[in-house]
């Protein structure tokens, strides 16, 4: 009981310190005061609305969703997954723009050194910055919730799907935000940090599927049970290759949405999947990709923040 009280006390202290973090307060105040936040919000909602209108037009030109209940449910699912996909795209490309100038911008505007000679710990500076970015992303997601709510008019979406997809959006924002913040802490110029952040985003969104395809193709040839170059090694090598392929694929946001959503829609599974082997072996079990995805992005984000703290602490010359 005493241990629980101590843990709760410590947690309360951490939350209290976080709420009083001067960088967080300054960032939120500054962000809401400026025009940029409203421009981003307007642009984000405008694009999302436009995209959804296009999806709706295309779908209704092909199928009459009033024809039967099944068509209506499908309409709800199409809208939901389209909005989630678009939100994911926005999060991946808006978060670096918010984070890549967070620390390098302080350097460029010559305010960084004023901060570094105060008693503000580097940890508070970095966590204040990432918290402000996350709060802004949450604001964007909340602002877009009416679009998501449209899908509930048609049905076909469960609260579990809604929760899992929003959890994925948040960990994606955290992962990409933290990595961009680390680039910002390392770079003297925001332009360099932005370039690195967007290169990273492109690798994770475009590079990973290409790498997965390449690994899967090679593995299928090498470990195939019949005719494979290394078939003599046994099926466990092929099974190992399957796990590697799925692990790599689970770092890609869009592949993760597709596989997680597909498994939920087809057989209602949200925790474990039964998948066909890439190397021609038997069916294998793998956690639903959103689970390794969450673990990967949280871990990557935490490592990036630790690096950012170290780079903030270290004098540049």
């Amino acid at each position: 009981m005493r241990a629980v009280t101590a843990v709760l006390g410590r947690l309360g202290g951490t939350i209290s310190r976080w709420r009083r973090n001067p960088v967080l307060i300054k960032e939120l105040r500054g962000r809401i005061r400026g025009k940029r936040a409203y421009q981003i919000l307007a642009g984000y909602l405008g694009l999302l609305g436009l995209f959804l209108s296009m999806v709706y037009s295309v779908y209704t030109s092909e199928v009459s969703y009033t024809a039967n209940a099944q068509a209506m449910l499908l309409m709800g699912q199409v809208i939901f997954w389209s909005v989630i996909g678009a939100e994911m795209m926005m999060v991946i490309f808006i978060t670096p723009s918010l984070a890549s100038g967070a620390i390098s911008g302080e350097r460029e505007s010559q305010t960084f050194e004023l901060l570094r000679t105060t008693l503000l710990p580097a940890r508070a500076l970095v966590w204040g910055k990432i918290s402000a970015i996350m709060i802004f992303v949450v604001m964007l997601l909340v602002a877009a919730s009416p679009f998501v709510a449209i899908s509930f008019l048609f049905g076909g979406i469960s609260p579990v799907e809604l929760a899992v997809m929003h959890e994925m959006l948040l960990v994606t924002a955290f992962g990409f935000g933290a990595v961009s913040l680390a680039f910002s802490a390392r770079s003297r110029r925001t332009s360099t940090a932005s370039l690195l952040s967007y290169a990273f985003a492109l690798i994770m969104t475009g590079g990973v599927p290409i790498a997965t395809l390449a690994i899967a193709t090679i593995a299928a040839n090498v470990f195939a049970p019949t005719g494979g170059m290394l078939q003599s090694l046994g099926t466990q090598w092929g099974a190992g290759a399957d796990y590697v392929i799925m692990s790599v694929l689970s770092t890609n946001p869009f592949a993760t949405i597709l596989v997680t959503g597909g498994a939920w829609v087809s057989d209602g599974s949200i925790w474990m999947l039964r998948l066909q082997s890439f190397t021609g072996g038997s069916l294998f079990s793998f956690p639903s990709p959103w689970l390794p995805y969450t673990a990967f992005y949280l871990l990557m984000g935490l490592i990036a923040l630790e690096l950012a703290i170290r780079w903030v602490r270290r004098p540049m010359d």
Partner: peptide, 11 residues
């Protein structure tokens, strides 16, 4: 106080 310093203009 450095010789050149920035300010937070939005405060």
């Amino acid at each position: 106080m450095p010789d050149f310093f920035g300010i937070y203009g939005d405060m």
